Each structure stands twice: as structure tokens, then as C-alpha cells.
Computed example of a mutant assay.
Amino acid sequence: MNISHVIRVFQSTRQGCWSGVARVRAGLIAVVVMAMAGCASSVSVVETWDGNPEAASNAATLEAPGEIRVTRVNGRVMTNFLMDDLALDYALLPGDNEVVFVYKTIWAKSGVVRNGESKVHVIESEPQVVRFDAEAGETYRFDFDQPESRQEAERELPEFSAAIVSSAGASVASSTVWDPKEQMTASRTPIPESASGSAPVSGTTALDQLKAVWETASDDEKKAFLRWAFE
């Protein structure tokens, strides 16, 4: 056996290892993509109540763009989806509603980015709350100033406020900084606090466990995973 033969064997083995890693990574990416596709198709309208209240048959709709992440509706914690910037519609029971949300924008960094350093600037508001009387069957949307640069977004952040606008274009409410002590206590359909951080139970699928782990990850860990998965 000569040295050239050893080199060929080593190269073949290394290529096989990299091929195996590539297949594993491709498989993981496929799972993530299918999960996101499934989420997008199954949660196009997110119900904000528990059970089957009669008023749900003529619920109102609140359209939230990617910059708005709704965290609570009438005290109920909303699901944290795989991607923070999903545009979602929320079905609201007619009557008084309290919506807690966070405004968040992401801006690419210019210049050289060091290893391990985030490639983006994240501009995120304190939790905001908006309370309004939703009419049956009506569609509402968030309305707020759209900054054209990171610097503009940073300047506007301390005074950020979003309006809730009806389908006719009328502003029905404006948001303020959320104070948990002032949470709405009006009687609504009983909504239990969703359990967070609970460990996966036996019988759950790998996708369920992945979602559970994802919900406990920090923003930086989520970004690092997505950069790895889609590189």
C-alpha cells in the first residue's frame, strides 16, 4: 500500500462523513420548513379563547403584521411560534378585549461582523397594551409609523404607540406601556393560564419536543439556530 492509496482512502472517508452530515442537516432543515409551513397553514387565524363560546361564531379579527408579536389576549398567553416575524390574524370575541403585544424590528448591521456577534440590530419595545370594544364580524388592524432606518426606529422607540384601526379606517384605540397590575378583569370565557416550560411527556413527537425546546430558547439562541440551519 503506497501513500497515494492512503490519501485516496482518507479523502473518500472524509467525503462520506461530510455527506452524512449534509444529509442530517438537510433532514433537519426539511423538518423545520415543514413545521413552519404547517404553522402557517394551521394558525392563519389564532383563536384567543378557550372552549366553544357561542359568540365565537361571529368573532372579530385583529390583523397583526410581522413587526407586532401579540403575547396575551384577555390574560391568556398566546403561543410563541417558531418565527417571531409571522403575520397572524387573531380572532377576538365581540365586546371588551385587552391585547398585550411587543413591537420589534430587525436591521442588518453594516461593516464587518466578528465571529459570534449578531449580524443584526434588534429594536424592541416594552410590552404595550391596547383595550377596545370589538364589534362582531369586524376586522381590525395595527397602525403605526414605519421607520426607514435603524436610527429612526431607535429615536421613535421611547414614544412608540400603535393604533387599532377598523376596516373603515377609523381609529378605535391607541396602545400604552403595559402595566400587569392593570390587567382587565372583565368577565370573559374562562381561559386557563397556558402552562409554559413544562417538560415533554411520553408519547409526544419529535416536532412537539422541538417546539417545547424552542419556546425556552433565548432570542440569540433562536437566531443562531436558524443561521446554522439555513447556511
Rank of each mutant, 00 (worst) to 15 (best):
S57K: 14
A30W: 13
A64C: 14
D179L: 07
N97G: 10
I68Q: 03
S44T: 10
D143G: 12
L93R: 12
P180W: 08
A153K: 04
A37K: 02
T176M: 11
K222P: 00
L28T: 05
F132M: 04
T48E: 10
V31D: 04
F160W: 12
E221D: 14
G51F: 04
P180V: 03
A162N: 09
Q183C: 12
G116A: 13
C17F: 15
H121T: 11
V45M: 07
K109Q: 11
G16A: 04
A229E: 01
T185S: 13
A60E: 14
N58I: 02
I3W: 14
K181C: 00
R227I: 01
P200D: 13
A108H: 03
A229P: 00
N97P: 06
T205F: 09
W178Y: 15
L92S: 14
V172K: 00
G51W: 13
N2T: 05
R131D: 05
K211F: 12
E231D: 06
A87Y: 04
G111K: 04
E98M: 12
P127Y: 07
F10P: 00
L62S: 07
V122Q: 00
K119C: 07
Q11V: 08
D85C: 04
F132R: 06
A35W: 08
P94R: 14
V102L: 10
D84I: 00
A163T: 01
H121K: 04
I123L: 06
A206H: 13
S161A: 12
R227P: 00
A212I: 02
A162C: 03
D133W: 03
I29Q: 09
G137W: 06
S166Q: 00
G20K: 02
P200F: 10
V43Y: 15
W214N: 00
L226P: 00
Q209C: 13
I106G: 01
S57Q: 15
S110W: 02
H5Y: 08
M1I: 11
A217Q: 13
A26G: 02
R69Y: 03
A134Q: 01
I29A: 09
V6F: 11
M34V: 04
I3G: 03
E215C: 04
G197P: 00
E63Q: 12
T205C: 04
A108G: 10
R14L: 15
C39F: 04
I106E: 11
